[in-house]
């Protein structure tokens, strides 16, 4: 589970968004895949992903269910777990993902994934031309491709471009339009920083595929240009 196909934005907006994920096929190669999934994430961490995640427990940025007066107001708040904890916390079959904000890191990670020969499916969700170029560079022949053709139907019910760019970075729709708009508004009013706002939104993405680096850039652009 990652559901990253329909991240909104034009190619320029999507220039720093590369998700690499591994997924076992249920009933075929999911037995004994846990260590392979951990290896995938451990390897990803060498290339400085901006987020990593797994479907059952989430990404780096997670809500805390045990805050109190001291942990909230008198100490710097912790907004999640160490990336290593995400990797070591995989304890069952499922999708694991690493999000990169630059093509070079994604390419170097693909090179390592190829050499690891884990035997489970690995996909890249990004601009297709970038992925194809990375495949050529690393010597991988793609097996299948799935294109996003965008939105249809009552598109007037969708939010503004800036809100959609942020909200669709959680493919399951857990980052609401209102939260994204609220964060943009608070940044413009000087009541929030893009760093904090991107962290707040990332906590609602249960797969850890929210790209906090792209979110910071988009909100900074919104702050200076609108």
């Amino acid at each position: 589970m990652t559901n990253t196909l329909h991240r909104y934005g034009n190619p320029e907006s999507l220039r720093d968004d590369y998700i690499v994920f591994a997924i076992p096929a249920r009933g075929i190669n999911d037995q004994g895949c846990v260590e392979k999934l951990r290896t995938f994430l451990r390897s990803a961490l060498k290339y400085n992903p901006v987020n990593v995640g797994e479907g059952a427990k989430g990404g780096i940025f997670r809500p805390s269910k045990s805050l109190n007066l001291i942990s909230t107001y008198l100490r710097p708040r912790k907004h999640g777990v160490a990336p290593q904890e995400v990797a070591e916390g995989v304890d069952g079959p499922g999708t694991v993902a690493a999000v990169f904000d630059n093509k070079e890191s994604m390419e170097r990670f693909l090179e390592e994934v190829k050499s690891l020969d884990l035997g489970i499916s690995v996909n890249v969700s990004a601009l297709v031309d970038d992925t194809r170029e990375a495949c050529r560079l690393v010597g991988i022949c793609p097996h299948s491709v799935e294109y996003s053709l965008g939105f249809r139907g009552r598109t007037e019910r969708l939010a503004s471009r800036r809100v959609l760019e942020l909200s669709t970075m959680c493919g399951h729709g857990m980052v609401s339009f209102r939260l994204a708009q609220k964060m943009i508004d608070q940044i413009k009013e000087g009541r929030q920083t893009p760093e904090k706002a991107s962290t707040f939104m990332a906590k609602f993405c249960t797969c850890g595929v929210f790209n906090v680096s792209r979110a910071r850039r988009l909100m900074e652009e919104a702050r200076v240009s609108d």
Partner: peptide, 12 residues
């Protein structure tokens, strides 16, 4: 169309 998912064919 410009965005999508590419299955790298590394699964067995």
């Amino acid at each position: 169309f410009y965005r999508g998912k590419v299955n790298l064919g590394l699964g067995k």
